[in-house]
């Protein structure tokens, strides 16, 4: 499995270490310097900033001057049935221009049909036909944005029909056909492994890690605290140690990558979020040290 040429050529130097998703609730604090020296990069969702005036554009521009910023979309609907939205892509391409040559990523999901936007990450069938169709859309997205694309594995709570391939095969096929990167969300792997009863590490072992350009980690919660039969990727709780272990497992095999701590619900005060970032950075650093040791070098 080769590293996609576009990504290796155009995204260097990508930030590494554990960054934070930039959210409106603490954007002003970051702008004021509260995260200076504490975060190697931020990630934004362009949809939260596009077509938006007021204080936000200047604030984001100032943050961009001090931190690398990666972009991760929410609304591309790579798995959607309708043609890609030309207006959305034109606006997104213009928005991304100041952010350097880094890849842009979005999710392996659909977001709606018939023009209706359901504003959630909804599952796609795991079939070879679907992998081919989505890969073509990812290529088209990269062309429209004039930059490399990466896709993220989602949490899914049911199989959308009879799978003809399993998820790792689906993802590998799509990555190869689209020649794109993977934003590997290890919390989603954990959530899916728990809900669907598979081994997360065995799953990871079948993913082409050379395609991984970034990792995501987040917290999850039970749908029903009493029954505790289904966990949901809520981004509303601290990252669990089982997810730490998956993060470390991947980093030991890939080497340095940008790792994003996502928090979208029950967002704590920034100092608390930075403390969790620090904890994850230690997990990341230890994994890199083990990788060095295994390679025969000094930790």
């Amino acid at each position: 499995m080769s590293v996609p040429s576009d990504l290796s050529l155009r995204s260097a130097p990508a930030p590494t270490g554990v960054g934070l998703g930039l959210r409106g609730s603490f954007m002003a604090e970051v702008d004021a310097g509260a995260a200076d020296g504490r975060v190697p990069f931020f990630e934004i969702s362009p949809e939260n900033h596009m077509h938006r005036g007021g204080a936000r554009p200047a604030r984001l521009a100032r943050i961009r001057e001090r931190f690398p910023v990666l972009t991760h979309g929410l609304s591309m609907s790579i798995g959607g049935l309708e043609p890609l939205d030309a207006d959305y892509f034109a606006t997104l391409r213009e928005f991304l221009a100041p952010f350097g040559d880094h890849w842009h990523s979005d999710h392996l999901c659909f977001c709606g049909v018939d023009g209706k936007q359901l504003h959630d990450l909804l599952p796609v069938p795991f079939t070879a036909a679907s992998a081919r169709r989505l890969a073509a859309r990812v290529r088209e997205a990269a062309d429209r944005l004039a930059r490399p694309m990466a896709v993220e594995n989602i949490s899914y709570y049911l199989p959308l029909g009879v799978p003809s391939v399993d998820e790792p095969e689906f993802i590998a096929e799509l990555l190869e056909r689209a020649d794109c990167g993977l934003v590997l969300d290890v919390n989603n792997v954990f959530v899916n492994a728990t809900n669907h009863g598979f081994d997360a590490r065995a799953w990871l072992a079948r993913i082409p890690l050379a395609r991984v350009v970034q990792l995501h980690v987040a917290g999850h919660e039970f749908w029903d605290d009493v029954e505790q039969t289904l966990i949901i990727d809520t981004h509303g709780a601290p990252v669990r140690t089982e997810v730490d272990e998956l993060l470390a497992w991947v980093i030991e095999r890939t080497g340095p990558l940008p790792v994003l701590l996502e928090r979208d619900n029950n967002i704590p005060a920034l100092p608390e979020l930075l403390a969790e970032r620090d904890r994850l950075q230690a997990v990341y650093d230890q994994a890199l040290a083990r990788r060095e040791l295994a390679a025969g070098g000094q930790p």
């Binding site: 599952p123 079939t127 169709r133 029909g161």
Partner: peptide, 13 residues
């Protein structure tokens, strides 16, 4: 799954 099947599954969902 054919494209028609995929279409139907997504639309029904």
């Amino acid at each position: 799954m054919t494209d028609d099947r995929e279409h139907a599954a997504i639309t029904a969902f």
